[in-house]
Design a protein around this nucleic acid. Structure first.
Lengths: 224, 224
DNA sequence: GCAGGAAATTTTGTATACTTAATCCTGTAA
DNA sequence: TTACAGGATTAAGTATACAAAATTTCCTGC
């Protein structure tokens, strides 16, 4: 018998939270866009009450900002905030690595190896979306192996803030080589169940990303 | 002329968020308590709409949990989640230390020295509330000196989750001696503008706290 | 022609009314 | 006496209506 899935019962507002989050992450709602209640409610076909609840929830996450009596708009992210987020992510990924390495099961390790191989194939095939999906999968697996729910939740919030800026999409070849080398080193550290090593590699990995994004921001600060 | 303070214009719901957060932090609303809309709305003298918006915001922070069609209740925090939070806090404080030490101004450093001295006096005088206020102040100052808004915001969320469990209130003498020694070491690291050192001390400091809370949880898991 | 101000419109904030879902209690049958 | 069914009650979910604030537009006066 297959695993029994609990029946997911969702309220309108939580459905809206997901939809809005996706719209923001995908760039349909760009930073600074005013969230005019009437317009969006009409589009979604819901009344203002659940919509406003959803907006308040997203505001608590920092994805939208509320101006009293002047409505809500998609949070604008300054360059500093982007860099800051990468710095914090470095600490979180580092911790995840330290925790994950001693805890990881052989099955999970094998799964990550598979993702790593698939990621390389995607890159060779020019499938960038696939590449990023696998990359994300590897990091997800490490956070899952860390077995710290607070850590995973914290990461989720910060991740949504930087994923919607798809800078990452434009990686130069040299940066890619670095990233791959770091990923290879992760596998070594994981295999050795060396938490300190994995933590260090992940911190370095995020620092590389940060430097790369910082450079990108320097040279084309206008393009979104 | 004194500094001009902007007029804070608050909506009802954000006022409610603060009030509810305080009630939860102070233990008036204990984990597991159902937030019955009608009762609380009557108490606060507001209608359900702003109240519900506030509850949704707190849910996004993880302070309350929503059960579809069954209302909201104050999030129950498992022992594992408490420990997890301390672990994450260790990484955040460590990062804050690394960033703060090279950036701190002589004035801020002096301020921290003052807080440290005041903290010791409070402890000697048996003023526990004062002690914790100063302790909090020192850590606040370090996070402020780190100059990373994302880091400060992330810390704020996790902090509210563990501050409402005032385990910390019952510190044994030996633990206190350790804490003081660690704080002294922080001042040394700050004075030397040694980020790596300050980061290491703070990580150790949080690890001490974690161990202490873990021990406390082991031996009196029932008391709230 | 431009500036200032007042009215109108739009939009948000709050309250209330209505609908739907869950729980509780009672009655009946085994 | 217990277990189940069905209605009654209560509370949550959603929609709408009303009030207040902000923005826009248009008119008047200089």
């Amino acid at each position: 018998m297959t695993e029994i899935e609990p029946i997911v019962r969702r309220s309108l507002h939580s459905e809206l939270v997901d939809r809005l989050r996706t719209l923001i992450a995908e760039g349909t709602l760009t930073p600074g866009t005013k969230l005019v209640e009437k317009d969006l409610c009409d589009s979604f076909g819901v009344s203002r009450t659940p919509f406003r609840e959803a907006v308040r929830a997203l505001a608590a996450e920092g994805l939208v900002v509320l101006m009293p009596s002047r409505g809500a708009s998609v949070a604008t992210v300054t360059h500093d905030q982007i860099i800051d987020s990468f710095v914090v992510m470095g600490a979180l990924e580092g911790l995840a690595g330290e925790l994950a390495a001693p805890r990881i099961t052989p099955e999970k390790l094998e799964e990550i190896r598979g993702l790593h191989a698939a990621m390389l194939n995607c890159r060779r095939a020019g499938d960038l979306d696939g590449y990023y999906a696998r990359n994300r999968g590897i990091h997800d697996a490490i956070f899952a192996a860390a077995g710290n729910e607070t850590l995973a939740a914290t990461r989720r919030i910060i991740h949504t803030r930087i994923v919607n800026l798809r800078f990452v999409a434009r990686i130069g070849d040299e940066a890619w080589a670095t990233a791959i080398a770091e990923h290879e080193e992760m596998l070594v550290a994981l295999n050795a169940r060396d938490g300190a090593h994995l933590g260090a590699v992940l911190r370095r990995h995020l620092e590389s990303k940060r430097a790369q994004v910082a450079h990108w921001l320097q040279h084309r600060p206008a393009g979104a």
